[in-house]
Structure formats: structure tokens, C-alpha cells
């Protein structure tokens, strides 16, 4: 038999050995490595009402027509280690009546490396996939004094106003989770962000399950994502231009763009 035919097997065994060797190193930061599942609730009546060109009559009518039935729930996932994080949409369904329907998910992978101070995101925006590679740029949070519990952790709050999307954003970060990661593209607080509230409930992302476990390769981006490479500032410009154009024609900007 040709010994060369064994080589993939040998490689595989070597890989297993390598993993076994690596494993204790992963266990090193055992307490602060794991997965957070967030429940993301979008209220589209509130999202529409927050648009500045809506008249009072339109807001009242939307609230009347849809106010009780405009919540849309999905799950998202954050994998984190002391130095890195990756955030993505979950395959799990939060709406029971969506069981059985698996639509195409928009490309959305948010990767943060706090050690190398870098971001590497793959985001579908306006029908196009962008690969955002840049140095780590987090929001400039204002620290507030409120306290509440989210998923068993006592959190403090911080505030940031997104002037492009006209969003008032409140983040609740855990005092006992020393990690600067968070859901969506939010980061940079002294503790893990466990809840984000945008425009008073227009969107709320709240941790509902925290599992501490080794995450290893879960932190990697899936391979084979093609897209246009872009810097953060240019990416923000694409968003800002679109929102301004939509505003001019009095159309909501949320279609084709993540809230």
C-alpha cells in the first residue's frame, strides 16, 4: 500500500493531538469564556414612530393599528473569550410560528479582537456584503448610575446617542463580567454588555442565557465570505448617505439595513 494514502489520516491525528495540547490553554481563562444568547425584540411601530418626518396623526394611527402587534422576536449569539468576541444571528427561532420556515439570513458576523485592537466584520448592507476591517472603534459611552439585573448579573447603564441613525441607546453592562464585548456592534464598556435598548423599546436586545464554556473555533469567521473590503469610516458614510436619501423621500431607512 502506498504510505502516502495515510497522510490525511496522519494529519488528522496530528490535528487531534494539537487540539489536545491546546485545550488546557483554552481552559486557562475558564471563567470568562462562553456564549450568550440574546433575545432581540424589534417593535416596528416604535421604529417607524421614531422617524422624524412622521406627523402626530401618523404616529397615532400606527400605534392604533399596529401598537399591540408589532413585536418581532429573534435570537442572536455572542461568543466571547477574554480577548475576542464574535456576534451573529442565531438559527434558533424565538417566534413559535416561524418554526418550519428557514429564510435566507443576511450576512452578519461581528468579530472583535481586544488584544490586537481590531475589528473584522462581515455585514450585508443594502443588498451588498461588506468586510469591515479596521482598528477597534467603540462608542463613546456616557456612564450613568442606574442598576438592574439582566440574566442574573447586576448591570450598570451607559448611554450613547447615534446621531446618524437618530437613536438613543442605553447599554446595561455586567459589573462581574470583565469583558468589553457586546451585542451588535456595541463594545467598549468595563463589563460585558448584557442589554441594549434603542429608542425606548424600538429595539431591545437582552441576554437570556449565559453559558460559560470553551468557545475555541466558534470565534472564527466562517470561511468563504466574499465582500467588499471597507474601512469603518467609509462604512458609516454608506449608512449616513442612505439614511439621508431616504429621509428626503420620506421613506423608512430600515428596509435593507439593520436597525
Amino acid at each position: 500500500m502506498n504510505p502516502r494514502s495515510f497522510s490525511p489520516l496522519f494529519l488528522f491525528l496530528f490535528f487531534l493531538l494539537f487540539l489536545a495540547f491546546m485545550a488546557p490553554q483554552h481552559g486557562y481563562a475558564q471563567a470568562m469564556e462562553g456564549k450568550i444568547r440574546y433575545l432581540k425584540v424589534q417593535n416596528w411601530t416604535k421604529q417607524m414612530s421614531a422617524l422624524d418626518y412622521m406627523s402626530e396623526q401618523q404616529r397615532q394611527k400606527m400605534s392604533y393599528m399596529w401598537g399591540n402587534d408589532s413585536e418581532w422576536k429573534t435570537y442572536t449569539e455572542l461568543y466571547f473569550s477574554p480577548t475576542r468576541s464574535k456576534y451573529l444571528d442565531s438559527d434558533e427561532k424565538a417566534e413559535a410560528n416561524m418554526e418550519g420556515y428557514n429564510g435566507r439570513k443576511d450576512v452578519y458576523f461581528i468579530q472583535r479582537n481586544f488584544e490586537q485592537n481590531s475589528i473584522h466584520d462581515a455585514i450585508q448592507l443594502l443588498g451588498k456584503t461588506y468586510i469591515v476591517e479596521d482598528s477597534l472603534q467603540c462608542q463613546s459611552w456616557k456612564i450613568k448610575n442606574d442598576m438592574k439585573e439582566v440574566a442574573g448579573h447586576i448591570c450598570m447603564n451607559a448611554f450613547w446617542r447615534d446621531t446618524i441613525k437618530q437613536q438613543d441607546i442605553t447599554a446595561w453592562f455586567a459589573l462581574d463580567m470583565p469583558n468589553s464585548a457586546g451585542p451588535e456592534r456595541f463594545c467598549g464598556l468595563p463589563g460585558m454588555i448584557l442589554e441594549i435598548d434603542i429608542n425606548d423599546g424600538a429595539m431591545n436586545i437582552s441576554a437570556d442565557k449565559i453559558e460559560l464554556m470553551p468557545v475555541g473555533e466558534k470565534l472564527e469567521l466562517p470561511k468563504k465570505i466574499k465582500g467588499k473590503k471597507i474601512k469603518e469610516v467609509d462604512f458609516q458614510n454608506v449608512i449616513a448617505t442612505q439614511i439621508e436619501d431616504k429621509r428626503k423621500t420620506e421613506q423608512p431607512w430600515m428596509w435593507g439595513m439593520r436597525y
Binding site: 448610575n145 442606574d146 442598576m147 438592574k148 439585573e149 447586576i154
Partner: peptide
């Protein structure tokens, strides 16, 4: 307040 009622505390 925090654990049982899940109410946020506002500290001034």
C-alpha cells in the same frame, strides 16, 4: 427590588 421584582434601581 433587583432580583425579585427585576426593577432597575436609579441611583442619584
Amino acid at each position: 427590588v433587583i432580583r425579585t421584582a427585576k426593577a432597575p434601581l436609579i441611583i442619584r
